[in-house]
């Protein structure tokens, strides 16, 4: 795999017609397919159960989708990187989004956020440490109540659901965005606003990071 075209040549060939375009499309697919295959076979420990042949097929399918995506977005290439890096970035997004969807195919945001038990139910949220004294337990319970109040009062239901899924359970933005009928960027902003509101609320209650960490870590 070599950088055999300049950015301008890639664009001209891909926008052209006839044999030059056909060759450029094949070269691009080959390049992206090699990159995707390398990533799938060397970096994804969750795919080790797949045979070489299955990985090759997967890489080929993803490369095909990636080429279509690159062609759809050709006009947005700004030329501030190598064209092949830009195209690889698109292929990476296509591949990883596909893997995330497959991994979370049975995921339900409704089930995840249905019980609402985000915070520890007991007054001793410190696990793995000896029981705390009554004064400390009371202080912890008071702070937990304030955090719960922040979640209840500072956030919209939509923000709370998104925050629980992404920040607490680590569900990818793409997956949650799909279930919330939004896009990844809008979801990121929604969570960003939720964090800011929670931080402002908790700080207005005199709760800092250091204080809470000390309190709950015993």
């Amino acid at each position: 795999m070599t950088t055999d075209r300049t950015n301008e040549q890639w664009l001209a060939d891909l926008r052209g017609d006839g044999e030059a375009q056909e060759r450029a499309l094949l070269d691009l697919k080959d390049r992206l397919q090699r990159g995707i295959f390398y990533y799938l076979s060397r970096e994804r420990s969750d795919l080790t159960y797949l045979s070489q042949r299955e990985l090759t097929q997967m890489a080929e399918d993803l490369a095909q989708d990636s080429v279509l995506r690159v062609m759809d977005n050709l006009d947005s290439f700004r030329g501030d990187s190598l064209f092949t890096t830009w195209a690889t970035r698109i292929a990476v997004r296509v591949a990883i989004s596909d893997l995330r969807r497959a991994r979370y195919k049975d995921f339900s945001l409704d089930s995840l956020t249905a019980n609402g038990d985000l915070l520890p139910a007991t007054s001793n949220p410190v696990s793995g440490t000896p029981p705390t004294g009554p004064e400390r337990s009371a202080e912890q319970a008071e702070v937990l109540a304030k955090i719960q109040a922040a979640l209840d009062n500072a956030l919209t239901e939509r923000q709370l659901r998104a925050l629980i899924a992404v920040a607490i359970h680590g569900v990818p933005l793409d997956v949650v965005a799909e279930q919330m009928d939004t896009n990844r960027n809008a979801l990121y902003k929604l969570i960003h606003d939720a964090r800011r509101k929670l931080r402002a609320y908790l700080e207005s209650q005199g709760l800092s990071l250091e204080y809470m960490m000390n309190l709950f870590q015993g």
Binding site: V126, L144, I147, I168, M212
Partner: peptide, 17 residues
Amino acid sequence: MDEQLHKLINSIFVDHQ
């Protein structure tokens, strides 16, 4: 510390920029 509580606090104060 409870894992979810830890993640929540980190999310608000550490991850948030």
